[in-house]
């Protein structure tokens, strides 16, 4: 049962508050208040910490933890694939509430944003460490720390994301991200999530060469690496087949400049 809410003005205050038993950070609150998980007794509001800003600079784009998904869409300079991942939350009303920090704190299995951040080589800045943590490591380790921001390096690269779900609002069965090699670095990659347990990152050298391997070859590559789990809306065989098709189409489309994020 929630008995109190605190509104720290500094990160240090927030960290001290988190040390209280039953305390939890409150971003938009969409998952916290929906129930289903352990209910905290103390909410730590992040609204006074100045984390709701986006900085776009030459070296990259830094997104504060309290930035909402809708802010991502509305802010110029945010990479297109990040905007597209945010837009996959189909409800604008929910996008007004969901925050980047909330997504990273919860790491939902069907996240579209995190696979995109992986493809873009993003790094997460935590309150408890000076050095940003690569997003892939963050995703694996899920450190119990306050996320301050996530930075996407400017590598001149493009990426695209697609999701498979029964409807626009249904739980996702599949997220497929393709990243083209960047002008300023960064390797081509494919990130494949079955939105359950399996997430595979494929970074094969031949994906960085031109011409790209054929679509069929890329599909084979994906099918060899990706073993998704079925869910109520999609069989494993279907997921594997479609993941391969989408990944191949996205990579070729990015290479040809015919695919939008």
């Amino acid at each position: 049962m929630i008995t109190d809410i605190v509104r720290p003005n500094t990160v240090a205050e927030a960290l001290r508050a988190k040390s209280m038993p039953g305390a939890a950070y409150l971003g938009g609150g969409t998952w916290l208040n929906a129930g289903g998980g352990p209910e905290p007794s103390i909410l730590i509001s992040l609204e006074n910490l100045g984390l709701a800003t986006i900085e776009v600079a030459e070296e990259g784009c830094t997104i504060g933890a309290a930035v909402s998904f809708q802010q991502l869409i509305d802010t110029a300079g945010v990479p297109g694939a990040v905007k597209a991942a945010a837009r996959l939350t189909a409800s604008r009303t929910l996008r007004n509430m969901q925050t980047v920090g909330g997504e990273l704190g919860l790491c939902p299995a069907d996240s579209a944003l995190i696979p995109v951040l992986v493809a873009l080589d993003a790094a997460v800045l935590l309150a408890g460490s000076r050095k940003p943590l690569p997003i892939g490591d963050f995703w694996v380790d899920k450190p119990d720390d306050l996320v301050l921001s996530v930075t996407i390096p400017e590598e001149g690269r493009t990426a695209a994301v697609r999701a498979v779900s029964r409807t626009s609002h249904s739980p996702r069965s599949l997220v497929v991200v393709a990243g083209a090699p960047g002008r300023n670095g960064g390797q081509a990659c494919m990130v494949l999530s079955d939105c359950r347990e399996e997430c595979v990152v494929i970074r094969e050298p031949e994906l960085n060469r031109w011409p790209l391997p054929t679509r069929e070859k890329i599909e084979e590559m994906v099918r060899a690496a990706f073993s998704p789990t079925a869910d109520i809306h999609a069989s494993a065989a279907y997921k594997r087949y479609v993941a391969a098709v989408l990944a191949a189409d996205l990579l070729h489309g990015l290479a040809a400049g015919k695919v939008t994020a």
Binding site: I5, T30, N33, S91, N96, M97
Partner: peptide, 28 residues
């Protein structure tokens, strides 16, 4: 309170949000 139907929509500081997904303290 699963955020789907939107019958609980309010404008919170001018932006559409779902009151069913918020707690009273957030309104302060």
């Amino acid at each position: 309170r699963d955020g789907f139907a939107g019958a609980d929509t309010i404008l919170f500081d001018g932006r559409a949000m779902l009151a069913g997904l918020m707690v009273a303290a957030q309104a302060d």
